[in-house]
Design a protein around this nucleic acid. Structure first.
Lengths: 342, 342
DNA sequence: TATTTTCGTGTAATCGATTACATGATTATT
DNA sequence: AATAATCATGTAATCGATTACACGAAAATA
């Protein structure tokens, strides 16, 4: 039953034109004060609502921004999205969510769909199979839609990014393990095509080097981010001639799997074996044997990404700003690696 | 640099009208086959993309649906959203996310904004201060936009809902605790204005009744869903003349808090005290002392909500379908309450 | 052959708002 | 009083696609 009220209806009622109504509602200074008041009052009484679609068509701006993540049901990504939403909501932007499930096809599909839906910007975390030379990215850039990577980033000219210093995260965690007296430190890494994993790995390596510990190729295992994968990987490690005495896992889930497997083998943590993870998933601090982990401040990352977007959205199209924000990782030291402090 | 290609550009190039182009692209049967092919080929070669905003304005349908949740960074809501997205994506819908942070003001704001943005439907979980008589809901209904509640629902005529059987969840959990030999079972509940908490509570009460156990008002505590709240609540319980020997908490976080507090007091779980939570948060199964909890199948809930929406979206406006889907809760029995099986 | 169908396409309105330009009414200036 | 400047509003195009209606040409029917 709800008749849609347009500016034409208001115009008709007041015997003026829609143009005048539009101007009055938009506080155009050329409108007589009395007219403006009358229009605003009438609009309110008729329960007028501006049609955002018409506005979007005319202006070419939808006031929507797209967010693409591998999956939304992970604490990390959900928190980033929360940050984005909170930062953008006051500016009148709505957040559209897309998932890739680590599929390049889905990722491209999402990019094209978002552009076709005329979003005003795209904030995304790439998949582990993303190719930065893909046409979809060119398509986005060519449309002059601000594109911002968060966490999982690729180097593309003209694209800003908000990441954490993964190298440093790897470095301080490894250094911490060394401080706890560990010398044979293993590392679970992820897909090397993702910068985040490469950098955590490099930080790990550098810390070893800086502390005079030889890097041992055998101690590095590439795992999926799952409990199961962590168990299997630890299994492999323990079969080595000289098994490690500590683990820096680039994934909390793999770290948890490792802990479960070590416990089953009655290896005492942290006395015989120290474990540290990455991401500060909620469960890491809830465990009785709480797990040391690197916090990525996802909320802050989301807010920062949103801010970078806001900075770019109104700039002249001709100037391409490329901003690289790097947040500091924070190591949360917990029981799984605390021989001394607890 | 990207010139936008419209149907007018295609029309001009082929010396026909935009109407013909539109028809050809929409597989209108009145178009000559040769023309259609030519148009489609030309459109492709010119890299034409349909302007969704223009389409939305004309049709009044945006192909967006709005999802409103208290917060997105909770495993439960994130999983529901995942389900919604996965179900709706193949149908060409985009999902817009809004958060309320349990604020009625934010909730209303979100409802109005979504309607003004012409979403084709709204799927939401209400706040704990939502009033079903609020004008915002009337506004939505009056616009004939399908509204579907999931999990946290209110009774509003013409509004469908997808929930789990919280009564049953409360019942089977309490019954399980009784089976384990507990007789003095406490309950942490939440805001009673939310059906979910009322129903879990009622299920709890009924189970006691059915097993000849007196209901003890003192054993029921209304807590927030947080670890801290759980600790404080257990503290109160233990000060009672006859402290309980089990807890059914309507929140996993409060259950965790309870467990931590009980452990600090060296009360042995599950031998002296059994604990069960609700929601099956990821950490409940990861703990060494894994926590018994009720699974709400959030993914399924999201998919089901999406399906209910799809059923309603194309129906004639005149017929208001009101569908109430109730999913079955599933009790995951774990160490925190297993005196016998583990 | 004359008349009716059918077919394919064009014309123009529509969705709702914005805005460059035009215009008439005041007011200010000389 | 004549001219210029200012003000408030109207006219009409525009954003890009869809679609009811119209119309000429070709095909079918009488």
């Amino acid at each position: 039953m709800s008749e849609k009220v347009t500016i034409y209806d208001i115009a008709e009622k007041l015997n003026i034109t829609a143009a005048t109504v539009s101007r009055a509602l938009n506080n155009n200074p050329k409108i007589k004060e009395s007219t403006r008041e009358l229009v605003i009052k009438t609009a309110a009484s008729m329960n007028y609502k501006q049609n955002k679609l018409a506005l979007a068509l005319k202006s070419g701006r939808s006031n929507n921004i797209g967010v693409i993540v591998p999956r939304i049901d992970s604490n990390f990504f959900a928190s980033v999205i929360r940050g984005i939403e909170e930062e953008l909501h006051p500016h009148g932007y709505q957040v559209i969510i897309c998932q890739t499930h680590e599929s390049k096809k889905r990722e491209n599909e999402n990019l094209y769909t978002l552009i076709d839906a005329q979003v005003d910007g795209i904030l995304m975390s790439v998949t582990d199979v993303t190719d930065e030379n893909d046409g979809a990215f060119q398509y986005v850039l060519q449309k002059n839609v601000p594109l911002i990577f968060f966490d999982r980033s690729k180097h593309i000219e003209g694209v800003s990014s908000v990441t954490i210093n993964d190298f440093r995260g790897g470095y301080i965690t490894t250094k911490h393990l060394i401080n706890e007296g560990c010398r044979k430190i293993a590392h679970f890494s992820g897909d090397q095509s993702l910068e985040i994993f490469k950098n955590r790995f490099l930080g790990y390596k550098q810390a070893l080097l800086d502390h005079g510990i030889d890097f041992n190729e055998e101690y590095v295992i590439y795992t999926k981010s799952s409990v199961e994968a962590g168990k299997e990987a630890v299994d492999k490690l323990l079969q080595l001639e000289t098994p490690p005495d500590a683990l820096f896992s680039a994934s909390d889930f793999a770290a948890l799997g490792a802990i479960q497997e070590l416990k089953e083998r009655n290896i005492s943590i942290p006395n015989e074996f120290c474990v540290a993870g990455f991401s500060n998933e909620p469960f890491t601090k809830f465990m009785e044997l709480s797990i040391t982990s690197v916090d990525q401040s996802p909320l802050e990352m989301g807010k920062m990404s949103a801010r970078v977007f806001l900075e770019q959205v109104d700039k002249t199209d001709t100037i391409k700003i490329e901003k690289k924000v790097v947040l500091a990782p924070e190591l949360h030291i917990r029981k799984s690696s605390s021989r001394t402090n607890f």
